[in-house]
Design a protein around this nucleic acid. Structure first.
Lengths: 191, 191
DNA sequence: TCGAAGTCTTGGCGCTGTCAAGATACGCCG
DNA sequence: CGGCGTATCTTGACAGCGCCAAGACTTCGA
């Protein structure tokens, strides 16, 4: 079977486009992403992406949904292994660092099709993986459990975004997971 | 003196362009911002903005610098008035809510000219307004003061971004400042 | 085997940011 | 007060972009 240099059907163009997009977003951010450039890199015509994603928003929506699913799977795995809410927070930051392109798109509804059913389902999955582990957390009496969850979420989300955008002072060190473990220690200490 | 409908010189085109940009960013985000559209709204030719800002990055850089300056002034005023690190954090969220367009650009070095001297100076100002108030904060013995500052920063920064992007559950209420005051209560409670 | 559905290409439209060159108004220095 | 340098703005053009419509090719099922 000879090697076809460029067959008419790509094989898995959808996957190839997502991967090329992830690489471009990780390098330059989602703002300058170009569908035509992706098509060129993958070796198809400039209008091929439209068939799989409709438009640019559709591509980014697919990426965000994939990110939510992977994050949910990571976080639940960590909680099942450690039983620790703190380690779930650390894993949140770890996901952001390991999958910066997914993370850069996931919380940006202005770039997405917010009503996409696949996106909504994946989003719900990831929310559950965050809100679930807070159930067993020891808290000061009278503390609202949901607010405690959002406090933890805010801290790790803020840390992840500040880190990814290069806004953290260098003195904190180079290991974001260690920083997260450290900072989260300031939360939920009994009065 | 008759009213000139469109004099050759605008008067304060720089200010007018920034204001139009702030409005557009607050509405649609920085991704879809169009210099030509701004020029049309303000009533000048499509190439006029280039003279004041060089390019799109220059405009966003000017907006970010303005945001840093205003935030620094807000935060130091609040600290001088209340002496409370917690209230500085609340004011951080308040600034983000009151100036969403500035905030949307300030921490996005991919959209800015990171070496711009005006931007660097304004950034340093705002960092000082955040790191200063942590000096007098009562902490558990042995706690790193800088890390405590970053923990607080992460929490309010995460909360602000999650709120602005519409990612917070509605049950938390409609007043972001109140939410911030609430969530920050989980921080720095003595062991 | 043949047709329908899926996949990709070609061509074109209006929009964008940016550059180059020229027109106009302001302000300073004589 | 007059003229000129300079800052400000306009006009025109170019390549690249997202998206749409129409057509070519391939695969698969009836």
């Amino acid at each position: 079977m000879p090697i076809e240099p460029r067959p008419y059907h790509h094989g898995d163009l959808r996957r190839a486009l997502i991967d090329a997009a992830l690489e471009a977003i990780a390098r330059d951010g989602p703002a300058t992403l170009s569908l035509r450039d992706l098509a060129r890199r993958v070796g198809v015509s400039h209008a091929a992406p439209a068939h799989h994603f409709g438009d640019k928003t559709g591509l980014l929506t697919a990426i965000a949904a994939e990110g939510y699913r992977r994050m949910a799977s990571d976080l639940t795995a960590v909680f099942e292994r450690t039983g620790s809410f703190l380690e779930v927070g650390v894993a949140y930051v770890g996901f952001a660092v390991d999958h910066p392109a997914h993370f850069a798109v996931m919380f940006r509804p202005d770039l997405l099709r917010p009503t996409d059913p696949e996106l909504l389902a994946a989003n719900a999955e990831s929310r559950a993986s965050l809100y679930g582990p807070v159930e067993g957390l020891p808290l000061p009496p009278g503390a609202d459990r949901r607010r405690a969850a959002v406090a933890g979420w805010s801290l790790v989300h803020g840390l992840a975004t500040l880190y990814l955008d290069g806004n953290l002072p260098a003195e904190l060190g180079a290991d974001p997971r260690a920083i997260a473990r450290d900072l989260a220690g300031f939360l939920f200490t009994r009065r």
